[in-house]
Design a protein around this nucleic acid. Structure first.
Lengths: 237, 237
DNA sequence: CGCGTGAATATGGTATGCCTAATAACAACT
DNA sequence: AGTTGTTATTAGGCATACCATATTCACGCG
């Protein structure tokens, strides 16, 4: 089946960036999105032939996409095995969250010290959106705004390395943090902590901002620990 | 066709890792080493056909190696250009070092809190090796021991995410830190800081250890800034 | 003499095919 | 009937061939 039309359909996609046109990057984006939506769940295998055919590309760029995701820690490969979606243990998640807490703490300090008032205002806008959508039953939308809030704080630092690393840690922790966000105590605590964050940010209190951010993520560790221990081992398919 | 000898030869191999046999990984190691030795310098292009032929592999695994190194920030790719060895600006190096300082600070805290006495002792052994090789004119050997010392502190945390991220940051900063190490004030300050580190580690003083590690890296920022501003812009080809 | 346009070349991107290794099923022997 | 060996199938790893595009050089025109 020489289906060149599918190939053309992909190349017809708008090219938003300059180097964002590599098929491997686009495929990596697709797979990341599928991990977010749950189409790909932790432990799921990603067969080269099946997946590449499903997306409508050949195996080569799919393999390259797997390489990218492997470097990000989102998939794991074994010598002669299909790559599988990463399924971090509780210990892994705890380790990742502890580093993330430190990174966001640093971001809080830097943003207090260096960000413009306009950037702080933009962060407050995201905070306001969280308040507005607090009653929205759409947990995904609320969570995306939550993540956007944290990301805005990091991006306000202007530190490219920090931004990139934070983004990668967030990708690996997305699922766990989303579960934490859905827990019954999640939202209340989240809103309180975020209110503290924006208050300390606007006061340019670096120490307090960093402290709240770290505590916020440490709480996430506790939440996730409780959730995973409650669910124990038995995620119904 | 029951070639048991070949089977035995394979099983005799030390199994260092589970997936370390991919050509792409081996090629990435080769290229990383060439960056360390200076065979590949910042800005150098990595032509797919030439390089793959020189190593003796096809383009596919070389391309995959490039993907890995790109994810690590060691090479940069442009749409229709040969990938080039990353040549971070002073601002980039400053950003990276600031994050690295934070990561090592966290490592210092964790190691003080969680590491075993044996691990601390192992770190002291590395410190002692630095003292012994302090007069050695071989700057590379001294620097490798320096890096091993820092790595040991991070590995003593047992935090896999931290270890991995620290390793990647170190790889990107290797060259800059090596230059900083060779500056005339480099060694004296390095030895003094390291003496403080091992002392505070053995005293299990988390705050002091983290503080020294952060200050140590901040000093590296200052050193590198001075070096780059002195050299200004003129790397003879 | 300079600038613009077109063609040729080189280079990265993609697809496909072959090779090797692992796994599972089936058969034969104990 | 159970266990072991062998074979077939499947899937990932690598190599190679093809394609699209960008860059550069040359030629011609202004």
């Amino acid at each position: 089946m020489t289906d060149t039309s599918a190939n053309k359909a992909v190349s017809d996609l708008p090219l938003p960036s300059l180097s964002r046109q590599r098929l491997a990057d686009q495929i990596a984006d697709i797979l990341r999105e599928q991990m977010l939506t749950g189409a790909l769940r932790p432990g799921d295998p990603i067969h080269e032939r099946d997946t590449s055919e499903a997306i409508g590309v050949s195996r080569t760029p799919l393999r390259e996409a797997i390489l990218i995701l492997e470097a990000e820690g989102l998939v794991e490969t074994s010598p002669a095995r299909s790559p599988i979606v990463a399924d971090p243990s509780l210990a892994d998640l705890s380790d990742l969250l502890l580093v993330l807490a430190t990174l966001e703490g640093l971001a809080g300090e830097l943003t207090c010290a260096k960000a413009s008032d306009a950037q702080i205002a933009a962060i407050r806008t995201l905070y306001q959106r969280m308040v507005d959508t607090n009653d929205d039953p759409d947990t995904v939308a609320f969570f995306r705004t939550d993540m956007a809030f944290h990301r805005a704080i990091v991006e306000a630092t202007g530190n490219q390395a920090l931004i990139k690393t934070h983004q990668q840690y967030n990708a690996r922790l997305w699922r766990a943090r989303y579960m934490s966000s859905r827990s019954r105590m999640g939202r209340i605590e989240t809103m309180r902590d975020h209110a503290d964050m924006i208050r300390h940010l606007e006061a340019r209190d670096a120490v307090a901002t960093a402290e709240v951010l770290r505590r916020h993520l440490m709480q996430a560790i506790a939440n996730i620990t409780r959730i995973l221990e409650t669910h124990s081992h038995g995620p119904a398919s």
